[in-house]
């Protein structure tokens, strides 16, 4: 048996994901049934039963979402703890690149959380109204989520089942750091221009959200996510590690750095997801989501303040920039 599969965290993680999937199948069958038979104007027993079943789907999905939300940091934590087993790996970056499924799995996971949070928001507005106006959208979206989660579960098992503990992997400094002079940044940016871009996109995004320019704000939040990733890996991260050559998105999840990665990445993804979800909700459902947009902006602001504070604290403690 692959020793990775005997690891406590991996076992618990896969066990949790599998239980969730069983419930998702249940919810999937019920929602197909509901989508086909639903008729809000009908007074039949069948319709009444469907409405009650609809509550089961909602309950299941709330449960699934809550657990998925807990399992995402747990997943990062799990692959981080595998670095002692995989030769060459020093942090999660090496472990996740141990086979080709790793990065795909991480992307699918983030996307699932994004779609699930969007679903939750639609559900919230659907239940607020008395006549279930977004019913079809909600269940259609769930079927899309189900397909994604099927893919995710398959990737989960494919990834953990195929980590070869005798095959050395590259550590993060080999993956992100030593590029032999090549510029890793997109659009040929240098660090200074990237930082100017980072802060100006943040300010623009805040103004766009506050002035309710929704479509532009949506585009800018995507752009912000993209630039933030590079800024954290290639600039802010080096201040977290206090080493100009250490460029890695994963090491900051470790204890040595006070688990600050969970705060940095959590607030970034949380904020961008929340903002994008609210804008999508508003455009698709035509409801007022300005409040959650503000929460999203707040989280993004927390992110920007955290990464800036890391740099400033380093500057004041050591009297120099890196």
């Amino acid at each position: 048996m692959n020793p990775i599969l005997l690891n406590t965290q991996v076992q618990i993680y896969l066990f949790g994901e599998s239980i969730l999937y069983i419930f998702m199948i249940m919810a999937f069958i019920i929602s197909l049934h509901i989508l086909l038979k639903w008729d809000f104007d009908s007074f039949s027993d069948e319709q009444y039963r469907l409405e009650r079943r609809s509550y089961l789907v909602i309950t299941i999905l709330l449960f699934v979402f809550a657990v998925k939300f807990m399992l995402l940091p747990y997943f990062v934590f799990t692959i981080d703890s595998l670095n002692t087993l995989v030769p060459g790996a020093m942090c999660a970056a090496g472990v996740i690149s141990a086979n080709s499924y790793g990065l795909e799995l991480l992307f699918v996971k983030l996307f699932v959380v994004f779609i699930l949070s969007w679903w939750l928001m639609i559900n919230y507005y659907d239940l607020q109204a008395k006549n279930y106006p977004f019913f079809k959208i909600k269940y259609g979206l769930y079927i899309a989520v189900f397909v994604l989660i099927t893919l995710e579960l398959w990737l989960d098992f494919a990834y953990f089942g195929n980590i070869d503990i005798h095959q050395p992997v590259s550590c993060c400094s080999a993956l992100f750091g030593q590029l032999e002079g090549a510029n890793p940044l997109p659009f040929g940016l240098d660090t200074k221009t990237m930082l100017i871009l980072f802060y100006s996109i943040f300010v623009t995004l805040a103004i766009l959200i506050l002035t309710k320019q929704d479509i532009t704000a949506l585009i800018f939040s995507g752009l912000f996510l993209y630039i933030s990733y590079y800024s954290v890996v290639y600039f802010f991260g080096t201040y977290v590690y206090e080493l100009p050559t250490h460029k890695c998105p994963f090491c900051m999840f470790q204890k040595e750095y006070h688990y600050i990665g969970y705060l940095i990445w959590g607030s970034l993804f949380g904020g961008v997801f929340l903002t994008a979800d609210s804008i999508l909700c508003k455009k698709v459902l035509n409801v007022d989501t300005s409040k959650s947009k503000i929460y999203g902006l707040l989280l993004i602001t927390v992110f920007v303040f955290t990464v800036s504070a890391v740099v400033l604290i380093y500057r004041f403690q050591n009297g120099t920039w890196l």
């Binding site: 965290q9 618990i12 066990f15 949790g16 069983i22 419930f23 657990v67």
Partner: peptide, 19 residues
Amino acid sequence: SALSSIFLLYAIPFVASVL
């Protein structure tokens, strides 16, 4: 690690069986 593992391993089956 231990605390979150214990919680997940206990809470998920618990909620799943009473849902």
